[in-house]
Amino acid sequence: MDAFKKHSGVVMPLDRVNVDTDQIIPKQFLKRVERDGYEDFLFFDWRFNEDGTPNKDFVLNHPGYNDASVLVAGRNFGCGSSREHAPWALQQYGFKAIISPSYADIFYNNCFQNGLLPVTLDEVSVAHITAQAKEIPGYAVTVDLENCVVSDNEGFQVSFSLDEFKQYCLLNGLDDIGITLQDEGAISAFEAKRQG
């Protein structure tokens, strides 16, 4: 897994609440057995018209956000299905961080497994970043995981918090399985105790 320390990038505003994983990546793409190649399917049903042409009204298709790498969205982002294809698609499309007032639990965990940082900020800060991203062409923020701060060039700065262990793993790009396997002795002992 790639480490995440600090990232600066253009912000794309997805000004909706309760964006579910069925929208992030619709089910027809879950039959693929690969772990990559999901970028073209991100937000597929919102992004493309019936005839396959890009839906010009959808924010992902606005030329100003072509280079966006930070997604700002309304509360309860990633609700619904547990599909890890959702963070895969977001990341493979080019998003490095998400900013939202809240996330659904499974999606939130899945992000960390893939080096995609979900930043939780208060509603006011999210509304501010959303408004700036809509109004200022090329509006960018810097997400600093080491210091837990989101800032922009206009003097805006806000800190965020997250589980320290998650922060540590992401900063160092650590693989969860590797860490747990260091505890192999404890797992074997637990199994032995149960059988005894």
Partner: peptide, 20 residues
């Protein structure tokens, strides 16, 4: 509880899950 694919791999490999 429901988990993601990386956690599925974790459980397959370790028969455990990391949870707060």
């Amino acid at each position: 509880l429901g988990i993601g694919t990386s956690e599925v791999e974790h459980v397959l490999a370790t028969q455990t899950l990391r949870q707060t």
